[in-house]
Every structure is written in structure tokens, then in C-alpha cells.
Nucleic acid binder design. Structure first.
Lengths: 342, 342
DNA sequence: CTTGGTCGTGGTAGCGATAACACAGTTCCG
DNA sequence: CGGAACTGTGTTATCGCTACCACGACCAAG
């Protein structure tokens, strides 16, 4: 094995090219004028030594690192995966690196990773916060003067650039669909109202009921963590009610998956025994088996726009007001809702 | 708006606590002995000023950044998503940050991101390389003395720690299954043999045929990029053959999805008109609709073990031989292969 | 022939942290 | 009771790079 070589520094290049470190720096950065002949010599030395300038040192002196962070509650959720993809792409094209952090929807982990990102002196953060309780974490970012944008979720009391889907309208649309099909008892499986998407969808759910002149029945709200297991438990509880719902609105795709399992476990079927709709499509699953009637959000676009908003702040140092971008979701009619689907 | 505050440095803390920067450093790092009273004063100052030590400066002097990189060809592929999750988790628990890079299976992007990671002075890289052509990129890492491990894929001519699934045995198992069901003309949709997983599965495919005393027919190999669109095109070509296959082995899950679409587009169905098997399960899709007969690889485990191997190298500076970890895949019998499934 | 540009380049001083050593005061033990 | 060992803390010198200023060479203008 070759012994670990000492890292090549700008001085090594300078020595080899017979110039000062300053001149090498000028060549690397293409700044100011350098004699073409000198420039060539420096470039040759760089190539021969395989020199790569340290971003640490550069970041230290320039006070900017060229690094962003993306913080999401669950990378394995296909919705967030798409956000990651979109964000990563925009960042790379703009010449920034992107550090990905998965908080597992855990506030403590979120606090931890935000501290880490501060220590890393990232120039900006795109974050889908855990919940309204993320506010202190975000305040901390602000106190450090680190730019950030909210993606997918807002946070009560935090005025900041944000891009999210139209959750209220989307939920309203889904529930209206169920109402149109004649359902009168519509369950809603949702996490805590401390999450803005849950809150907004809850709002849409109620509005739709109200539009139809129906009274809101608290018994039909089943609270559960927004994961398959949560959906399973919640659906089971709903079905065990004395007067169970004939249709259910699941707050997101993973919850819907769990809900379906609960239905099947009771020997029932969707949509025959209970209709089901939810937010967020599941890309690959729908390709194989287009079953769930959903409001599909443009997840990848949330990622790209979020990152663009962020870069905008960073590079233009705009101090104008917080921008709010709301993207409409798309209604996809499929079998799970029990309509005569296309 | 609050004006961007100048970053608090160790000196600010030192001044406020009435000690030297060195003492603050000792408190931060818990190194050596510091008078409890002094320590308290320093900690108070840190809290009051909201001081967070710069990893840039620390990394520069210590020559270690506490940062790893994970490079994959496609974060949106559910298989790699799980690897990401596993890797990220192990890294965080071990006190490392993880930078995620998506190469989009593009060699040029791969080269670019590897240069970036060198510039970032990451301490190690876990990489699922694009193909055997990634070799120069990896050699470059080696010449920089940056530790790396291969995940999911090996690279011809690169001796390095690696963790991957047992592709040959898995492929053999899948094809044997089809043979057992009576199929004699079995198609194989696969990307270039420059990708080790493709190569190994190809190998397994041939071995299975050989075991059954069947002759290999090159016409049954359909080459295509390992994405749904590739699977679609390839399956169409196979079905248009004069003597089309009655069963097809798709090199991975996404290819299988495209293949199914091609079958349906011709008004045919899986498995009635053509049986289908593939590598890698699709977590959420299978939960909703367990249809594909697959060899399921322990993707998340690939991520965790890969990262553990990496940390091992970094922290123990082991110079022993390259370790090779091969994890078995699990055969999941479902409907797509046309057997009387459980 | 001085003055005042423009070039091309180098010197010096940090960025924010820590390694390595130094040093004063205390404790210990033969 | 004096030197060794230990405690707690400060000083200095970098880490690799770039901002900032300086400087010699050259040339045109006054």
C-alpha cells in the first residue's frame, strides 16, 4: 500500500511553480491578472501534484462555505425523497454542496442536527420542520444570521420564506369527493395539529363537512403518528366504533398504507367496506398498482423551489418580506375511493 | 429585522469569562483539567453568547472534519433510499455528519462530486459507484488517502472494503424458480455488464440455465438503462421477438415496473402472458400490493454495514486487507411469477 | 526626467481553533 | 526542607488559504 500522502497544499504548488502562494491563489480563483506564462506553469503544477484547494481554509477566511443543509423528518418517505432529489439537484447546479439530515420526526434530533449545521457554518438551510415546536430551533438559526426556508410545512409564529402545497384546498377536495359519493360519516386519520400540514388538512376536512352542512363529529378524528403503523392502529380504532365511518381520509400516503392493512386484517376491503383517500402519491406503487385516490403534491418541485428561494436569500441578501409559495395539488381519482374510476 | 450578528468566536467567550482562548478550548473539548469554578464561568459565557465552535477552524487544525460522504446513483430509487437511511443513521450516532450526493448514474457528475468531497476534506466516503468506469475516481480517492468503501457494487480492479448482496446466488434462485415453473425461454433485462450487480446477476442467470441444461440464447438478453423507461423499452423488444420469452427476469425493481407497463400496453398481463421476477423489493408498493416475486436485499443493512466498515477504517486506521461482506437476499414468492403463491 | 498610471507579483496578517510548550503555585515525599 | 510531580492556565505557532497593501518594472504624459 502507498503510505498516506501528506495533503498537497497551496505552498507545495507555489514552490513547484516557482511563484508565491498568492499567485497560485489568483490562478485558482481566476481573480485579477496573472501572466499567461505564469498561469500555465501554475496550472501544470496543480495537475502534476493533484492539488485540490481546501474548502475548510477557504471557508474560514472567506466566511462562506458553499454548503447548504436539507433537513427532513424522514428520507425514506417517498414524498420527502422527491424533495431531497429536487433540492440536491438545484444546489449542485448552483455550485453548492448539500448536507442531508434526517430527523426521524424527533425534535431532539432536530435540535442536534441544527446545532451541527451551525457548527458547520452552512450558508443556508432548507427544512421541513418536525412541528410547531421546532420554533426555538429556527429562532436559533435566525439569531445566527443563517438563512433558512421552510419546505412543506410552516411553523406557527415563524415568518420566513416558505413553499408548501395547498393543504386546505386539497383536503377539502378529497373530502368533497367522498361526500359526493354519498358518504356521510367520514373518518380522518391525522397526526398532531402541531404539524402545519396536519392542521391545514384538518381545516380543509372541516370546511368540506361544513360546505355539505354536516356536523363535525370529534369521534371520527383518529390521532396517530404519520407512519404506516399509526395508520393501522388508527383505522382499527375507527372501525371499532359503534357507528364506524364509511369512508376515511388519511393524512398522508404512509398512513393510508397502514389503514389498508387494518381494513384487511378485519377481513374487509377497500373501497367496498370503507372508502379511502389520502394526501401524496406513492410514485412507484402507483406505477405498479394505481389504487389510491390521492391529492398528489409536486414534491420534487417543493424541493427545487425551496432551494431556489434559499439561494436567492443567500446570494442577493434580500431583506424584503418573507415569500410564501403555495403549490396546488393534483386530484388523482383511482379505485380506493370507490367511485366508478376512469 | 435584526442585523446579521457577527459570529461569536472563542475569543469572545474567553474575554467574557476572563480567561484565555485556550482555557475555553479545554472546556469545550473536556480535555485536561480545568478548575471547576473556571469551567462554570466559561460554560456560562458560552450559553450567554450562544457560542458554537466552528468546525471549519477545528477541522483545519486537527486535520479531521468529522464529515463523511455517501454517494449513490439515485436517491429516489427506494433501494438506495434505504441505504441512505441506514448510512445516515450510523454516521450520526457515531458523531459524524453525512453529505449525500446523487450522481444520477452519470460518470461526469460522479467525478465532480468526488472532487468536491476531496475539497471538503471528508474523512471517508461510502459509495455505490456508477460502474467499473468509476475506477479512476476511486483511484483518485486512494491517492488522497481518503478512506472509502464500496456499497452494493464492486469495481473491477479496485480492492477495497465492500458490502453487497449475493447477486449471483440471488439471480440463480430467481431463474431457477422460473425454470421450476416450466419456463424454458426466459428473458433477462439488464443494464451494461460494466455494473457489477448487473454482471453478477447475469452470471447467476447463466448458471441457472446451465444447471437446467439449457442453452444460453443471446437474443433473450435485452440491454437497457436500469430505470422504468428502460424496462419498458426492453420488455417491448423482448415481446416483439419471433419466439418471445414466456418469463422475464428484470435486473431490478424499477426495470420491472417499466416491464409491466410494456406488457399491459400490449394488452397482455403479468403473469398470465409472461411471468416476471426481479431483484429488490419496493417497500411501500409491496405493502399496498404484494405482487412482485423478488429477491429482497437488506438495503438498509447495506447502508449501516458499509458505514460501519468505513468508520472502522477511519478510526482504527486498520491497514489490513480489504474486507468483503456479502449479504444474502431473501426470496419472496408473490404473484408476478405465476406460481400458486402463498 | 519626474510623475503617475497599469501590470504582475510578493509579503504580511489574519480567519477560528488547537497542539505543544512554558510557567507559577501547590502538594508530596524521602 | 528541597526538588519532583502535579495543577491550572497562558503564550506561541501553526492549519491552508485569501484580503490587503506594497513594490519593482515598464510606459506614457507633462
Amino acid at each position: 500500500m502507498v503510505p498516506t500522502p501528506a495533503t498537497v497544499t497551496i505552498k507545495d504548488v507555489a514552490r513547484r511553480a516557482g511563484v508565491s502562494a498568492m499567485t497560485v491563489s489568483r490562478v485558482i480563483n481566476g481573480s485579477a491578472r496573472v501572466n499567461p506564462e505564469t498561469k500555465r506553469r501554475v496550472e501544470d503544477s496543480i495537475a502534476e501534484l493533484g492539488y485540490v484547494p481546501s474548502r475548510l481554509a477557504r471557508g474560514l477566511i472567506r466566511q462562506k462555505t458553499g454548503t447548504l443543509a436539507l433537513i427532513v423528518p424522514d428520507v425514506a418517505n417517498p414524498f420527502f425523497t422527491l424533495i431531497v432529489r429536487g433540492a440536491e439537484d438545484v444546489a449542485r447546479r448552483a455550485g453548492y454542496r448539500m448536507i442531508l439530515c434526517d430527523t426521524r420526526a424527533d425534535l431532539a434530533i432536530e435540535r442536534e442536527v441544527i446545532e451541527e449545521m451551525i457548527a458547520h457554518r452552512v450558508e443556508g438551510i432548507a427544512i421541513a420542520p418536525v412541528s410547531d415546536r421546532s420554533r426555538p430551533h429556527l429562532e436559533r438559526l435566525r439569531s445566527f444570521g443563517i438563512h433558512f426556508v421552510l419546505v412543506d410545512r410552516t411553523v406557527e409564529g415563524v415568518e420566513q420564506d416558505v413553499v408548501h402545497g395547498d393543504n386546505t384546498a386539497g383536503a377539502r377536495r378529497l373530502v368533497r369527493h367522498l361526500l359526493d359519493l354519498g358518504h356521510r360519516r367520514i373518518g380522518f386519520i391525522v397526526e398532531s395539529d402541531e404539524v402545519s400540514t396536519a392542521r391545514d388538512r384538518h381545516q380543509g376536512y372541516r370546511e368540506a363537512l361544513q360546505d355539505a352542512g354536516l356536523k363535525f363529529d370529534p369521534a371520527l378524528i383518529a390521532r396517530a403518528p404519520a407512519v404506516p403503523e399509526g395508520g393501522l392502529q388508527a383505522m382499527r380504532r375507527l372501525l371499532e366504533l359503534d357507528d364506524p365511518p364509511t369512508a376515511v381520509f388519511a393524512v398522508n400516503n404512509l398512513v393510508a398504507l397502514g389503514a389498508i392493512e387494518a381494513v384487511r386484517a378485519l377481513g374487509l376491503e377497500v373501497p367496498d367496506d370503507v372508502a379511502l383517500v389520502c394526501f401524496d402519491d406513492i410514485e412507484h406503487a402507483s406505477r405498479l398498482y394505481p389504487f389510491l385516490t390521492v391529492m398528489a403534491q409536486p414534491a420534487e418541485t417543493l424541493g427545487t423551489i425551496g432551494t431556489q428561494l434559499l439561494l436567492d436569500r443567500i446570494e442577493r441578501r434580500a431583506t424584503d418580506q418573507a415569500r410564501v409559495v403555495v403549490l396546488p395539488a393534483q386530484f388523482l381519482l383511482r379505485r380506493s375511493s370507490g367511485a366508478a374510476a376512469a
